[in-house]
């Protein structure tokens, strides 16, 4: 501790920009990402999923009646036994993100390239952020491609172009999906700093993802029962319990993703929480919300996703700065 405070006093600032060389890292890592076998596998998987689910949805939709948001249904309509495309994305995106980043830092240590890299005139910041951004851009590129494929397929199979509002909603949807991937990207990057073995880092990332996807819902229910039990049955007690349950379940990025995507792709959703009858006074039930109102509805979700990404990345950043190079 003494050494640290001393350093803080003696060292006013570091020389030069911490981002020197970052774009070189981004370029190299993106090239690696896009040409790697693991990415090809995941891309193929995602494209197949997209085509399969959209085709199934289109079949369903053609038999249905008139719907002002036909294009949005393309993403959300499920045909048993397959889930809808957004459902698939809920686990494909974390998988792609984890695959992109689980060996980001420990891979450099294992290849023994780390000391050669860091002896170039760059800071560690540039390496870490460069790798993260390369992952995010790759993810964005892949998701945008699939997004375009689906819209193209939609125009062909449904025979109508999307409306301006639908395109707007779909663009927001794309953004939410990318930031949902961002969380898992930063989780995997963090584990790639903590664990020396890439396999361990991958497993740990998947374990965290499974925990939030499968178990967190159950744990949230249990915690709610314990923390806000219904003793008498007053309305206040019930409301308190439901609110707590919602708050707890929204710790999981999956819940944030599902809520946000639902509100964006289904304009009829007016609220993501508990709605009391008094709050509905004057509301025109059954009328869809305009886009800006839907975005307002999920604004906390989007900021939550981005904040979590930054927070986890920052934790990894601190750990990486303190890491000794000689391993």
């Amino acid at each position: 501790m003494a050494a640290q405070t001393e350093r803080a006093v003696h060292t006013p600032a570091r020389e030069g920009s911490p981002w020197t060389g970052m774009w070189a890292v981004v370029g190299k890592e993106m090239a690696d990402n896009l040409t790697s076998v693991r990415m090809s596998i995941l891309e193929t998987l995602t494209v197949l999923t997209a085509i399969g689910t959209v085709y199934a949805a289109a079949q369903n939709l053609r038999s249905g009646g008139r719907d002002p948001y036909l294009f949005l249904r393309l993403f959300t309509t499920a045909r048993e036994p397959l889930p809808a495309f957004v459902g698939f994305l809920g686990f494909l995106v974390p998988l792609i993100a984890i695959a992109l980043a689980f060996d980001a830092i420990n891979g450099e240590f294992n290849r023994r390239t780390i000391s050669r890299l860091l002896s170039q005139p760059i800071y560690r910041d540039a390496l870490l952020l460069g790798k993260f951004l390369a992952g995010l851009f790759t993810l964005a590129l892949v998701l945008s491609t699939i997004w375009l494929i689906i819209i193209g397929l939609g125009i062909v199979t449904l025979g109508v172009p999307p409306s301006g509002e639908e395109v707007g909603r779909l663009l927001w949807f794309l953004l939410v999906v990318i930031f949902y991937g961002g969380i898992w990207l930063s989780v995997a990057t963090l584990f790639s700093i903590v664990f020396r073995q890439p396999a361990t880092a991958a497993l740990a990332s998947i374990a965290v993802w499974l925990f939030f996807t499968v178990f967190w819902g159950m744990i949230a229910d249990l915690l709610t029962q314990v923390l806000a039990p219904i003793r008498v049955g007053y309305l206040e007690e019930v409301v308190r319990q439901v609110r707590l349950n919602l708050a707890l379940s929204r710790i999981s990025p999956n819940t944030l993703y599902v809520d946000a995507v639902l509100a964006l792709l289904n304009p009829n959703i007016r609220s993501l929480g508990l709605v009391l009858p008094v709050q509905l006074e004057g509301a025109l039930l059954g009328t869809p919300l305009p886009l800006d109102q839907s975005v307002l509805l999920i604004w906390p979700h989007i900021t939550g996703l981005i904040a979590a990404t930054i927070l986890i990345f920052a934790l990894g950043y601190v750990l990486f700065q303190r890491r000794e190079i000689r391993a």
């Binding site: 020197t20 023994r112 800071y123």
Partner: peptide, 18 residues
């Protein structure tokens, strides 16, 4: 460190490449 590392070459013991 940037000025130093721009002028000093380092050939580490554990030398790795891509």
């Amino acid at each position: 460190p940037l000025s130093v590392k721009a002028r000093v070459g380092y050939l580490p013991e554990q030398l790795g490449f891509y």
